[in-house]
C-alpha cells in the first residue's frame, strides 16, 4: 500500500469522521482514498474550495468533539497556518498531515524536508506548539496516525505528521490495527447540541483581557512541559561506541541508515540517531546516542533546519557537521557514506 493511502486508512480506523482537504501533489492519493472510503465508513469527506476553508472546517468539526483531519503538502500547509494557530488558541485536537515537497513558493513536487522550521517553531502566529511526528516507513505512517489522534485528544492540541513525498508515494507492506470502537469522551468541553441541558461550551481563541490571555497561554505551556517530559521518541541505531553519529529523520533517515550500515561494515564506528518526534525534540535520547561521539553529522533534505535543534540539544559539546540536498533532490546512501568517511578519515 502507498504511504498516502496508509495514512488515510489508518485515520478511518482511528475513528476519524471528518476529512477536509484540497488536492496537491505529492499528497493527493490520501484525499482520493478518503473520497472513496470515508462515506462508506460513516464519515464525511469534503473537498473544500481552498486549504484555508479546509482547515477551518476541521476547526469547526473538532469543536463538536469528533475526530477530524486535513492533509496537504508544503504550499498548502502554509495556507493552513492561520487556522492551526486558531485551533491551538482554542485548545482543539486535530491531525494535520504535511507530505512535504520542495520549496519555497510553489517549489517542486519532489520530496523535501524544508518545512521543519515551520512545523516545529512557527506553525502560525502566537505562543504555541503543535506536536510533530516524523515517521520513516509506511508502517510508521500508520502508527503515527494512531498516536497523533490519541495525543491530540489527550493534550487538546493539533498534532502534525511531517512526512515527505518519498514516504507518501512509496509502497511497502503494512498491517493495520483493528478499527477503534471506543473514543475519548469530550462531553466536558465539546460544543455539541444539548437542548439547554447544561451550560454553554464556548470554543474561542479571542481573549481581550490581557492577563486572562496570559493565564491561558501559561496553562498551555504547563501542558507543553509535560509533553516535553513524556512524549519524546527516537530510534538509536548502532550508537553503542559510535564515534560519529548521523542525525536524520523521515525518509532521509533511511538513506542515512544504509550509509551507517555500510560504514560499520567498513570498520567505521558510525551510528544513527533518528528522532520520531520533532517537537518535542528527543533531547535525552540524542545525548544518549552521542555519549561516545566525537562528531555529529546532521543530514536533511533541506539547507539545514533540524541542525539547530541538534546543536541546542547537545549544547554544542560536539562539533555538528551538515550534509543536505534540497529542492526535491534525495541524497543517496553513497553521498552520506562519503561524508561519514571524510569526517572520520575512514576506518580506525
Amino acid at each position: 500500500m502507498k504511504g498516502n493511502e496508509a495514512l488515510a486508512e489508518a485515520a478511518i480506523r482511528c475513528g476519524c469522521k471528518c476529512f477536509f482537504g484540497y488536492p496537491i501533489t505529492p499528497q493527493t492519493e490520501l484525499s482520493a482514498y478518503m473520497a472513496k472510503r470515508m462515506e462508506k465508513s460513516g464519515g464525511v469527506f469534503l473537498q473544500a474550495e481552498s486549504e484555508i476553508a479546509a482547515i477551518n472546517m476541521v476547526l469547526g468539526a473538532a469543536s463538536t468533539g469528533v475526530r477530524a483531519m486535513t492533509s496537504s503538502s508544503s504550499p498548502g500547509v502554509s495556507l493552513k497556518a492561520e487556522g492551526i494557530s486558531y485551533m491551538a488558541g482554542s485548545d482543539l485536537p486535530a491531525v494535520i498531515i504535511n507530505v512535504q515537497r520542495g520549496g519555497p513558493g510553489l517549489g517542486s513536487i519532489q520530496p523535501a524536508q524544508s518545512d521543519y522550521f515551520q512545523a516545529t517553531k512557527a506553525m502560525g502566529h502566537g505562543d504555541f506548539h503543535v506536536m510533530v511526528l516524523a515517521p520513516c516507513s509506511v508502517q510508521e505512517m500508520v502508527d503515527a496516525v494512531t498516536l497523533a489522534f490519541d495525543k491530540a485528544d489527550q493534550y487538546r492540541m493539533p498534532v502534525m505528521i511531517l512526512a515527505d513525498g518519498l514516504l507518501g508515494q512509496m509502497m511497502e507492506p503494512v498491517t493495520f490495527p483493528e478499527a477503534k470502537t471506543e473514543l475519548p469522551d469530550k462531553s466536558d468541553w465539546a460544543a455539541c447540541g444539548h437542548k439547554n441541558g447544561r451550560k454553554h461550551h464556548i470554543i474561542n481563541s479571542l481573549f481581550l483581557d490581557a492577563p486572562l490571555l496570559e493565564a491561558k497561554v501559561k496553562e498551555r505551556y504547563e501542558r507543553y512541559k509535560q509533553i516535553e517530559e513524556n512524549e519524546t521518541d527516537a530510534e538509536l541505531y548502532m550508537c553503542d561506541g559510535a564515534e560519529i553519529v548521523v542525525a536524520a529523520y523521515g525518509a532521509t533517515a533511511r538513506v542515512a541508515k544504509s550509509a551507517v550500515t555500510k560504514a560499520r561494515a567498513e570498520g567505521i564506528k558510525a551510528g544513527l540517531f533518528r528522532p520520531k518526534t520533532l517537537w518535542p525534540f528527543p533531547v535525552k535520547e540524542i545525548n544518549q546516542a552521542c555519549k561516545d561521539a566525537k562528531c555529529i553529522l546532521d543530514v536533511e533534505m533541506s539547507m539545514g533546519q533540524m541542525i539547530y535543534d541538534v546543536k541546542l540539544a547537545t549544547e554544542c559539546r560536539i562539533p555538528v557537521e551538515f550534509y543536505g540536498r534540497t529542492g526535491g533532490v534525495i541524497p543517496t546512501p553513497a553521498e552520506v557514506y562519503d561524508e561519514i568517511k571524510k569526517l572520520t578519515g575512514g576506518a580506525q
Partner: peptide, 9 residues
C-alpha cells in the same frame, strides 16, 4: 529491512 527505497545502483 530496507534502508533507502530509492535505488541509485
Amino acid at each position: 529491512p530496507i534502508g533507502s527505497p530509492l535505488v541509485a545502483n
